[in-house]
Design a protein around this nucleic acid. Structure first.
Lengths: 155, 155
DNA sequence: CGAGTAGTTTAGAATGATTATTAATAAGTA
DNA sequence: TACTTATTAATAATCATTCTAAACTACTCG
């Protein structure tokens, strides 16, 4: 079985695969392909997007397997869901430090905004007795490129 | 924004209806029923929840009308979507000042967390050239009630 | 006040994302 | 190598949301 399906790959030391292994899950060719693809992208893909990308190298891949793997990784805290985009589908974000996703409502691009001090938020929620497990901070608007296009082309 | 609204009144002077009227939309009995119900709730309902509540008093109400009205109000900036809950449906939040929604992953309750200084966020996104139009800040975790139940009942 | 018209509503069909089902398959293990 | 059990693949099922087309009605203007 072709275990190394994706070009530009990172065959060793994939923290997603390490996490799966540590959790006791079986390391299948499909999961390796998905984890490697995720590690080598900087997009915020939907399940369908992952499926379509990987299917080229892995024709028998099932969409259900992608969903299963993504939710398995999410359950392990290795991925987070991003608030649904305009198209109504869930997008995934690799779990790093808490950050804000800037979603462009015109082109759909998602940019990460890191390095914010979120401690006031944690403090405020603690005063309400709420215990935060996961943050989903999303801002919708127009990215720099779309703003420029709108201003130059004027519609 | 005014914070005066207390439940159990508001046959007149509904800012949602005022907004619809100001936009030139027709004021129908269905829209009045939806807007009044929204004004008098402090929940973060799904479209289906609004539909089921109102259908008791308004048996011919169609679910599509609820969706239409909610997205109309959202387009006018009078409602905002909350990041999808666990059940995969969109919830709505009346537009007041930007705030954070605390979603309990155990009981589903959503609490608003107001009075946060979000200017650092706006500043950071501006340096990227991103123009924020709408914020969707959601934190998932356990509310005080569920924490207490888990600790006392111990599962 | 009473048509005309353009926006709304309704009911149901269609869409699209996600989940469930189940037989076949393969990873990990002894 | 053979066994046990989790996983996969293909497809059906589900559920939220949107679309469609015909009937309806709020508002405008005469």
């Amino acid at each position: 079985m072709n275990l190394e399906g994706h070009p530009a790959n990172n065959l060793e030391d994939n923290p997603l695969i390490d996490g799966l292994r540590a959790s006791g899950a079986k390391i299948t060719a499909q999961r390796i392909a998905i984890c490697n693809w995720l590690l080598n992208t900087n997009t915020h893909p939907t399940a369908t997007a992952v499926y379509e990308e990987i299917r080229d190298d892995f024709p028998t891949m099932s969409l259900a397997t992608v969903y299963n793997t993504l939710s398995l990784l999410e359950g392990l805290g290795l991925l987070h869901q991003v608030a649904r985009a305009d198209d109504g589908s869930v997008r995934y974000d690799q779990a790093t430090t808490p950050h804000i996703n800037l979603v462009c409502t015109r082109c759909g691009q998602i940019t990460d905004l890191h390095h914010l001090d979120l401690s006031p938020l944690a403090r405020s929620s603690a005063t309400l007795g709420f215990h935060i497990q996961n943050l989903n901070l999303t801002a919708y608007g127009l990215c720099a490129d779309c703003l420029a296009e709108l201003e130059s082309g004027e519609k």
